[in-house]
């Protein structure tokens, strides 16, 4: 298993090694040690490899990930798994702001808490946070699912499009055009699948409430101006 010690090796070498891997290449597991808060670690992966990062990372770890499984054995700075396309990103610790921002696919699991703007502008990604999330999460969320086992901060789902939000704990406040919605059978099934994929045990889908868009801001209407 190739190991990159970021206290010795430039970031460039790591990311270059992870790009354009030929199908069927022998090395499918990579390890990164001493990340020491480095930014842009394991960004732009485009093959089904596993990358284990032993320590905490800075901004944009696993940005634009496709197909790879990236595990951060520590905490992640802002924008972890931003614009992820597919694959899985797991943060064993906490995640800073904008976790999973604009993500289009794949699964982001945060075992600790996520700060503000988790899932901002999400476009198809599934995000499961074991702890709490901060304010303005899922702002302008277009598609995908955000599952929170703990509590959500202020203005959850502000200006939401079609992303689905599931929160088990309390929600401090809902943002403009975000409303609680009925939890139907199909949502319970969806949620059960997400919890299983995220390795969550001992928690039932029925413990969650569902939030989504009231779709009142979908067409500009002057009588809604106060909501903008």
């Amino acid at each position: 298993m190739p190991t990159f010690d970021l206290s010795q090796t430039p970031l460039r070498e790591l990311n270059q090694a992870l790009h354009g891997l030929a199908a069927g290449a022998n090395d499918t597991e990579f390890e990164v040690v001493n990340p020491r808060g480095s930014h842009a670690v394991a960004v732009g992966c485009d093959a089904p490899v596993a990358v284990s990062i032993r320590g905490s990372v800075g901004y944009y770890c696993a940005g634009m990930n496709s197909a790879a499984t990236v595990t951060v054995h520590g905490s992640a700075g802002p924008g972890v798994a931003e614009n992820m396309m597919s694959g899985t990103v797991v943060v064993e610790g906490d995640a800073s702001q904008y976790a999973g921002a604009t993500g289009r696919g794949g699964l982001l699991v945060i075992k600790g808490n996520a700060a503000s703007r988790c899932g901002i502008s999400m476009k198809g990604i599934d995000i499961v946070v074991h702890g709490n999330i901060g304010h303005m999460s899922a702002f302008m969320g277009q598609s995908g699912n955000l599952v929170v086992l703990g509590d959500a901060g202020e203005a959850l789902g502000d200006s939401l499009y079609e992303a689905k939000l599931f929160v088990r704990g309390s929600v401090k406040s809902l943002g403009a055009d975000c409303v609680e919605k009925e939890m139907r059978e199909e949502h319970l099934t969806l949620l059960a699948g997400l919890l299983e994929r995220a390795g969550v045990t001992g928690v039932e889908p029925s413990e969650f409430r569902r939030y989504g868009s009231a779709r009142k801001l979908y067409s500009f209407d002057i009588d809604n101006a106060d909501a903008y």
Binding site: L11, H39, A40, V43, Y59, Y60, G63, M64, E82
Partner: peptide, 9 residues
């Protein structure tokens, strides 16, 4: 840092 990320990708 965003630019660094885009350059690395």
């Amino acid at each position: 840092i965003k630019i660094l990320e885009l350059r690395e990708i």
